[in-house]
């Protein structure tokens, strides 16, 4: 009988430990969010979104150029990554058996695991050095490479969630495989695919390392794709390690903006994927 008691105790202990693990993980989250919110809100104002950075010693100013820069960079990245990613995803889900498919799938997972700083070094080599120019294009290339595998794998996963009956119906009606995929299966999974794209965008919008030596930074507002361009993340980094309190405050405001973007994207993703999952009834 004591053995039973012991087993029960051990079991409760284990359950308790798991619950504690959850709390342990959520404590830093709460801490990070608390500081980003409290310090960020203090520093955030309309100027932050509409004004340019000011030189050392003048207080105020904002990150208007960096915000536009981040939008341009992620836009460029999406332009490159969405077609490659979605089409690769279609390929992976439609031709699951072949040797080439496992190679591509492995490549996608590998690429997903390559440290972003390494992708930055690569982009510097192929898109900065040959042109003797830091540029928004080089930054977009680095971020795009990071997005491709995320989009490819989500697209694949979500296409596989589409009920087989839909495909069989289309094929039975005499549609070619391409027609079945692009008129029936992809549209059915579209909310999920878009979610994957949004999540990938959110991830690269928060990237700093690959931008340090590709898109570099710019004190001024620019929309020239062949010029260095500012981004919120690089600007936050510059400000964070500066000795000026004014700049450090701006770094917190920038962090708040980044976290808000991530939060909204994750929330959207959660809602959209739950809809796709519901469709399949799980």
């Amino acid at each position: 009988m004591t053995r039973m008691v012991w087993r029960r105790m051990l079991s409760s202990l284990f359950v308790g430990a798991c619950a504690i693990a959850v709390l342990v993980a959520l404590v830093p989250l709460a801490f990070v969010l608390f500081f980003v919110l409290s310090r960020g809100v203090q520093a955030l104002n309309l100027d932050f979104f509409t004004h340019m950075p000011l030189p050392v010693g003048e207080s105020g100013g904002g990150m208007a150029n960096s915000i536009v820069g981040t939008l341009i960079l992620t836009g460029l990245a999406a332009l490159m990554a969405v077609p490659v990613g979605v089409m690769s995803g279609v390929y992976l889900s439609e031709f699951p058996g072949s040797r080439f498919t496992s190679i591509v799938r492995f490549a996608a997972d590998t690429l997903n695991g390559v440290p972003s700083i390494v992708i930055g070094v690569f982009a510097y080599g192929v898109a900065v050095l040959p042109f003797r120019q830091f540029s928004a294009l080089a930054g977009g290339l680095a971020l795009g490479i990071m997005m491709i595998p995320i989009i490819a794998r989500t697209t694949e996963e979500l296409l596989l969630l589409v009920p087989g009956a839909l495909r069989e119906g289309a094929l039975a009606l005499g549609a070619t495989r391409a027609r079945a995929v692009f008129t029936v299966i992809v549209p059915a999974a579209l909310p999920g695919i878009i979610t994957g794209i949004v999540l990938a965008l959110a991830r690269v919008a928060g990237e700093t390392a690959p931008l340090l030596f590709t898109s570099f930074n710019n004190r001024f507002f620019t929309t020239e794709l062949t010029q260095p361009i500012s981004s919120v993340t690089v600007q936050v980094f510059t400000y964070a390690i500066s000795p000026y309190e004014d700049w450090q405050r701006q770094a917190w405001a920038g962090a708040l903006v980044l976290v808000t973007i991530v939060f909204i994207c994750s929330l959207m993703a959660r809602l959209a994927t739950s809809r796709v999952a519901d469709m399949r009834g799980r």
Binding site: L26, V32, F35, V36, L199, V236, F237, W252
Partner: peptide
């Protein structure tokens, strides 16, 4: 379940630079 999954996902999605900022000052 759903809120917990969401929170862990959020933890994963916070940009590295934000963790770094928090790291330096907190």
């Amino acid at each position: 379940r759903t809120p917990l999954v969401f929170l862990t996902e959020l933890l994963a999605a916070i940009p590295s630079i934000v963790y770094g900022l928090w790291g330096i000052f907190v």
